[in-house]
């Protein structure tokens, strides 16, 4: 399937209650290398209860500047969480349904992400 189909989908728990919307999808590069780079496995989805958009990911990193934009966006995405692939029952362009007793994880990324600025 195409990834942006699932971005913005409504996320429901097994009882059908709305939890939020898919703000992002997290991948881990830990699969056997095809050729050049490790394969990218879907680890899970980031769910935001307040907004479907994902602008900067301030809720996922520790960037606090520029004030007050970083603070406002962090607040806007408050309550975001990560659900793992194992806890997803069905995934589609309208809705994503989670399994019963799913676990919500902290969405934080370690550091600033994989792409440190290349020092040219």
């Amino acid at each position: 399937m195409i990834l942006t189909d699932v971005l913005g989908s409504r996320v429901l728990n097994s009882e059908g209650d709305l939890l939020g919307r898919v703000a992002d999808a997290r991948f881990v590069l830990d699969q056997p290398p095809g050729q050049l780079l490790a394969g990218a496995r879907l680890q899970g989805l980031i769910v935001s209860p307040h907004s479907a958009g994902s602008f900067m990911g301030y809720e996922r990193n520790d960037v606090t500047r520029p004030w007050p934009i970083a603070q406002i966006l962090k607040w806007w995405h408050r309550g975001s969480f990560l659900v793992l692939w194992e806890d997803i029952e069905i995934m589609g362009p309208e809705t994503v349904r989670l399994r019963e007793g799913f676990t919500a994880y902290h969405p934080g990324l370690q550091g600033a992400g994989p792409g440190q600025a290349p020092q040219r």
Partner: peptide
Amino acid sequence: LPILIVANDPQYMGKHVNSRAVNLAAN
């Protein structure tokens, strides 16, 4: 606005992010 935001993003800028003084003026 996008430039102001990215100039503060360590992913792009490493240690060359905006200083506090620049951010104050930029705001």
